[in-house]
Amino acid sequence: MNLFLNQILAIVWKDFVTELKTRELFSAMFIFALLVILIFIFSVNLSVVKASEVGPGVLWVAFLFSGTIGLNRSFMLEQENGCLMGLMLVPADRTAIYFGKLISNFIFLSIMELFILPLFMIFFNIDILEHLLPLLIVIFLGTLGFCALGTLLSSLASNLKTREIMLPILLYPLLIPIIIAVVRMTGQILNGEPLSEMMNWIGLTASFDIIYIGVSIMTIDHILEE
């Protein structure tokens, strides 16, 4: 078990070192998310619609789109110079590769989200500080589900001919349930409702996370196989 954790940590650490050296991914994700929010602000008339009604949707679309950039990078980077082959030759379980990638994707996306939230608060004039804890729980559950399924499909898409195009096409329809859930929950939280009012949505999101992590553990061997 200890060995398994060490293997996962080694992969996460490798991704972090790469990111610290190149600084390509994080800045791109952050600026892209910011642009998505700006474009949405220009496309809806905020003096007509209530900010707290469109806000959650805009926020999650920004997370989703910039998260896709991160996912696209995560396995495609490994394709260059045959790094993925090197990873697979390591005497480690394939699930360790999956969990390593899942954790590094999750951490990158979470950091980006923490930077976006204050900007969202300023642009939409929504005070999120009073509901911060429930909001963070929802963001945690949503981001975990996105990364669980996204990492699996990203490992799959990286071997296709048109990888950048196929990942969103495969991923977005499967993410619709979780998008509906997190947007609903974020909206209700910003309206001041407690988490106990939306246990059905939390159950849906949590079981989505658990089931897709489980499915990924079972199927990752068949994807990373050469």
Partner: peptide, 20 residues
């Protein structure tokens, strides 16, 4: 193999789509 993985992942999504 890839198609099979997507076939499984896609079908398991149906209950989530239904309830959401």
């Amino acid at each position: 193999r890839y198609a099979a993985v997507l076939g499984i992942v896609g079908f398991l999504n149906i209950p989530f789509i239904h309830f959401s």
